[in-house]
Simulated assay, not measured.
Amino acid sequence: MSPLVSLFLLHIVTASAAQLHPGYYLGTCPKAEAIVRDVMKKAFTKDPRSLASIMRFQFHDCFVNGCDASLLLDDTPTMLGEKLSLANINSLRSYEVIDEAKATLEKACPGVVSCADVIIMASRDAVALTGGPDWQVKLGRLDSLTASQEASDDVMPSPTSNATFLIDLFGKFNLSVKDLVALSGSHSIGKARCFSVMSR
C-alpha cells in the first residue's frame, strides 16, 4: 500500500470533520483502537482477503453522504439501504469483521464507540496490516439513522467508468487526480469479480 493511498484515506476521512480529533475515546473507551486492531489481526489470520474488503468499506461509506456508517444499515419497510446498491451488492464483504469489532467494543464500553468510527479505525488497520503506513485517525463521528440506495447508485463509480468521468466525479468531492490514482492503486490487493474487468 503506497503512502498516496493512506493520504487519500486520511483526506476522505477528515474532509468536513473539524470537530474530530485523535484520541477521541481516551477518556470514555481508552482501549477502543487496540480492540479494533486486535479484531483486524484475527480477521487477517482467518482470511487475508478480509483486509482488502474492509479498506473498501471506508470508501463506499464515506463517498455516499459522508463517513456515517449508513453502509451498515439494513433495509426497512420505508428505506432501501446501501448494501444492495449496484456498487455494493455481491461486492462488499466482511461485514462480520465490523460486527465483531463493534460487539467487542460494546462489551468493553457499551454505547460509546460509533460504527462510523469502527469503520475508520478498521480501514486504517487494514492498510497497516497489509504492510502500508500506520497513522492516527481523527474520531468522534456519529452514526446515521438513514441510508440511501439511490444515493449510492448515483455516486459510486462503475468499473466501466472512463478516466474523464472519474476525474470529474472525484473533483466534485475536492479529490485530485492523484487521489484517484492512489485509490485505484489500492485495488491491487484483494480480488475482483470477473464481470468487473470483462469489458476491458
Rank of each mutant, 00 (worst) to 15 (best):
L145K: 05
T146R: 06
S158Q: 15
D143V: 03
T160I: 08
S123C: 08
I167K: 07
S161Q: 12
L145W: 04
S148R: 02
A116L: 06
A126N: 07
N162S: 03
S161G: 12
E100R: 15
I119V: 01
S152W: 06
I120D: 04
S161A: 15
T160F: 11
P157F: 12
A108L: 06
R124H: 12
A122E: 08
A101P: 15
A163R: 15
R124F: 07
W135D: 05
S161N: 15
S123M: 04
I119G: 05
E100H: 14
R141F: 11
T160Y: 14
D117L: 00
R141P: 03
L139V: 00
A101W: 07
G111D: 10
A147R: 10
R141D: 10
P133A: 11
E150G: 06
A101D: 07
A108H: 08
L145Y: 02
S148A: 07
K102I: 08
S114P: 09
P133L: 08
R124N: 13
P133C: 06
D153E: 11
L145H: 08
L139S: 05
D99M: 10
R141S: 07
I119H: 03
L105C: 14
N162H: 14
V112M: 09
M156R: 13
S123I: 00
P110I: 09
G140P: 07
W135L: 09
R141E: 05
V127C: 09
K102Q: 13
S158L: 11
L105T: 13
L145I: 13
A126L: 06
A103W: 08
I167D: 04
D153Q: 11
V113M: 10
D99Q: 15
G131F: 08
V113A: 09
P110W: 11
A163K: 12
L142K: 13
T130P: 06
M121H: 04
L105P: 14
A122H: 03
S152I: 10
T160K: 12
W135Q: 04
P110F: 13
D143F: 05
A126T: 06
A116Q: 07
V127K: 02
P157V: 12
R141T: 04
E100C: 09
K138M: 10
T164A: 03
L105N: 04
A103Y: 08
G111K: 04
V112P: 09
F165K: 05
Q136R: 11
L166K: 06
K107E: 14
D134F: 01
S114M: 12
L129P: 06
E100A: 15
D99W: 15
D134M: 01
D117R: 01
A103V: 02
R141H: 10
D117F: 04
P157S: 13
F165E: 04
V137K: 03
A126V: 03
P157G: 02
E100T: 10
M156W: 06
A147E: 09
A147N: 07
I120A: 00
L129M: 07
C115V: 04
I119D: 02
P159D: 12
S148F: 01
D153W: 13
D134Y: 02
S161T: 03
L129S: 03
D117H: 01
E106D: 15
R124G: 07
D154H: 01
V155W: 00
D117A: 00
A103E: 12
I98Q: 11
